[in-house]
Amino acid sequence: MWEYTDKVRDHFLNPRNVGEIENADGVGEVGSLACGDALTLYLKVDDNKTIEDAKFQTFGCASAIASSSALTEMIKGKTLDEAIKITNDDIAAYLGGLPKEKMHCSVMGRDALEAAISNIDGKPVKKVEGEIVCECFGVTDLEIERAVRENGLKTIEDVTSYVKAGGGCEKCHDNIQKIIDNSLGNETPVEQKPLKLTNIQKIKLIEETLQREIKPALEKDGGGIELVDVEGDTVSVKLYGACATCSASQVTLKHYVESKLKELVTPELVVEEV
């Protein structure tokens, strides 16, 4: 069961501002039935470009409904210039936080707000730009880049939690990883790796990468990893904590640990759990 805050429960059980606004000045529609959640946001704006009224309709889970309800409360009385500055984090914070896996609900709120504001005065809804990366949920590279940048996302799992990309068939995981790496690379230049490693260099580098990159990420989820042995290009590791019992541990191992080591040490590496 999800750990929802009292505020999430309250906004879910007693949602504010439900419904449509006739002759709304701006309407923002995001999400779809297939994706499992969708939000339509209606705005009424006065002459001073202040949001007079906001209403919503949402299909989705408790946190999607609560995020929509919170959003309408947050924007009423704000000018459009003020409202557009609201981030998904602000929505989550208003609700006293959301489980990480549910952050996409707050992102949906932010997206609907942007769509509704850009629709004001009958302007056509701004088209989503960029190339589709995740076909299952129709998420583009620009959307992923933005989520990574604005929320400091570091793993594919983070990206899935925030914008859903990668949560379906997982075929796009390599491409998402590239976007994350590029984005992180913008801040810290990617280290140059030596062309040919000696065995000792290789083991050292594997150990360093585990300590610096992989361990902290797994620990965030209550898991851990330990290097057991390196034989040729086979890296034996032990997962413990939440990782050891997690049904997704094989995914973690292959998609995250292995791809990270391949990238930062040498592409020949294969990771095995012992």
Binding site: W2, R9, F12, L13, L33, G36, D37, F59, G60, C61, A62, A64, I65
Partner: peptide, 14 residues
């Protein structure tokens, strides 16, 4: 149709 399961379960939980 047109509703989401988690929301139903949390309401049933009430």
């Amino acid at each position: 149709e047109y509703v989401e399961g988690e929301a139903i379960l949390l309401m049933l939980d009430q």
